[in-house]
């Protein structure tokens, strides 16, 4: 049941307002909030995982095959924590749309 609220009829609502599908909030893309975008430098990165650990949106994931971290821009809100916390400045915040 991931339709918007005004498209749901009362017959579709489960008793008690139970939401039976876990984690369905991922259908809502918070990436549209972003005004700044993190830019990642693979060569500078020391693979310390700090960005992954400190990301409040869980928008950063490892890519073992290509030996790098990957940002999910559907959910990244552009808070800049990864860039600020990076010990080697491998991440830089850039204005969105530049």
């Amino acid at each position: 049941m991931t339709k918007p609220m005004d498209h749901i009829t009362w017959q579709e609502i489960e008793p008690g307002g139970v939401i039976s599908e876990p984690g369905n909030a991922s259908s809502y893309h918070t990436g549209t909030w972003r005004s700044q975008r993190p830019v990642y430098d693979v060569d500078k990165c020391i693979r310390c995982w700090r960005c992954f650990i400190m990301c409040p949106d869980a928008a950063i994931s490892p890519d073992y095959e290509n030996n790098r971290m990957v940002w999910n821009f559907d959910y990244c809100k552009g808070c800049g924590i990864c860039a600020f916390e990076c010990p080697v400045d491998a991440i830089e915040m850039q204005e969105e749309g530049e």
Binding site: P22, G23, A25, S26, S27, Y28, H29, T30, W33, P56, D57, A58, A59, N72, D74, Y75, K77, G78, C79, G80
Partner: peptide, 8 residues
């Protein structure tokens, strides 16, 4: 999951 609406 990702997709929660917490502030930046």
């Amino acid at each position: 999951n990702s997709g929660h609406r917490a502030c930046q």
